[in-house]
Simulated scan of single mutants.
Amino acid sequence: MKIYKYILIGFLIVTTIFVSNHGGNVSYALFYLAIILPIISVIYTLYVYQHFRIYQMIDHKTIVKGELVPYRFTVSNEYFITYRSIQLKFYDDKSQVVGGDTTVEYTLLPGESIEKKTNLRCNYRGEYEVGIKMVVITDFLRLISITFPIQSKYRVMVLPRVLNLSRLRILPLEKDAKRTLTCNNPEQIEMDNELRNYVYGDSLKRIHWKASAKKQTMQTRKMTQNPRQEMNLYIDLCKLDVTGMDQIIIEDKMIEAELAIVKYCQKMGVPINVFYQQDGPQKRRILNAMDFNKLYQESPKIKFNQKVSVHELLSKNVINMGKCLVLVHKLEDALCIQLQRLKQNRAELVLLYFTSELEEEEKVKIGTLRSIGIYVREILREEELVNIL
């Protein structure tokens, strides 16, 4: 395109010199033509922008991260002037139009339309615009090209992935950890010492033979329900220190780790409480699939912009914490102190630390926490959660 501009500039210089030295109708006609051509190009470009039409269609406005969904767009000329050299630019920071070639130039005759069917992949959770971002229109003489934003943009809601874990590696390897998360019943059934008369249908395993012999009648143990130990999960939603893609990737990993852990507990029948700060303190108690689905549907709208740190949330539950998982992206001194305090109160702690790189100071803090019996796992941005959790 630059060569056409150079030709026009050269033509303007030559006609100016010619008019200055010779005059005449022909020289003036050429001179005015060199001036008018750029004006005509601008008017043509503006006309095409005002009158050409782009239609986009995605089968779903709610999409799961990483999945391919059908996407199609149509470029249409509904008027009587030919449109040439129309290029489409797609959003490519958080989403990808598979096969969306930005170098293709569309030329449309009057009344013609071109439809393209392809797929769209969204790479990160959240709510954002996808598809065509802008259009580049070049005039018929290829003198100028102007980039215009699309007026009606397509916005979608992208849900995070839910990892299907067969087991939870991050739990401390204590004698009751495996038992706690391997039963599909939310409550364990145990036999009590209290006895009652035998009833037809009672299992023979429940018969207390010594008591039966003493009373000369069949006696069986009563069954009691032993509530399962709950788990608590805390997630840090303060603003990250990193920006750009590091920020987006780490935020996604934290949300996906939270959902994977909660889903696993829900599947295993273990009650879990999720604590976080989002326009005020929030607590989600997950007991069944309905509870999990509600938490999952809220996840794309979660913002990492809170001013209440996770150690402040923890400070309200120092006593009787039980099993506690903490997901953070900062290893602040106040958090380390709070974790040590919880450990002194016999809490079973798992700390997942999400970071783009591990600095020497952070390694020292992690070593200190591990030395007092806290399980710490650092998760770098390039690591796959399914290999860690």
Score class of each variant (00 low, 15 high):
Lys2Glu: 04
Ile9Pro: 02
Leu12Arg: 02
Ile13Met: 15
Val14Ile: 15
Thr16Gly: 04
Phe18His: 08
Phe18Leu: 14
Gly24Phe: 04
Ala29Gln: 05
Ile63Lys: 01
Phe73Asp: 03
Glu78Pro: 02
Phe80Glu: 11
Gln87Gly: 01
Leu88Gln: 00
Tyr91Asn: 03
Val98Phe: 03
Val98Glu: 13
Asp101Ile: 08
Thr102Asn: 12
Val104Met: 07
Glu105Trp: 10
Thr107Ala: 11
Leu108Tyr: 01
Glu115Gln: 15
Glu115Pro: 09
Lys117Leu: 07
Lys117Gly: 00
Cys122Lys: 01
Glu127Asn: 08
Glu127Asp: 03
Glu127Met: 08
Tyr128Ala: 00
Val130Cys: 04
Asp139Val: 01
Ile146Asn: 00
Pro149His: 07
Ile150Pro: 00
Ser152Asp: 14
Lys153Phe: 05
Tyr154Lys: 14
Val156Lys: 00
Val162Lys: 11
Arg167Met: 10
Ile170Cys: 08
Pro172His: 06
Lys175Leu: 11
Ala177Gln: 09
Lys178Asn: 12
Thr180Cys: 06
Asp192Cys: 04
Leu195Gly: 09
Lys205Glu: 07
Lys205Cys: 02
Arg206Val: 12
Lys210Ser: 15
Ala213Pro: 11
Lys215Ala: 12
Lys222Asn: 15
Asn226His: 09
Arg228Gly: 07
Gln229Val: 09
Gln229Phe: 05
Asn232Val: 00
Leu240Trp: 04
Val242Asn: 06
Gln247Arg: 12
Ile255Met: 08
Ile255Thr: 10
Ile255Pro: 02
Glu256Trp: 00
Gln266Asn: 10
Met268Glu: 12
Met268Gln: 14
Gly269Lys: 05
Pro271Gln: 06
Asn273Ala: 12
Val274Leu: 10
Gly280Lys: 06
Pro281Gln: 11
Gln297Leu: 14
Ser299Asn: 08
Lys307Gly: 10
Asn317Ser: 12
Asn320Thr: 06
Val328Trp: 04
Lys330Val: 07
Cys336Lys: 03
Lys343Leu: 07
Gln344Cys: 03
Asn345Tyr: 12
Glu361Pro: 01
Glu361Cys: 00
Gly367Lys: 08
Ile372Asn: 03
Val376Ile: 00
Glu378Thr: 12
Ile379Ala: 00
Leu380Pro: 01
Leu385Thr: 03
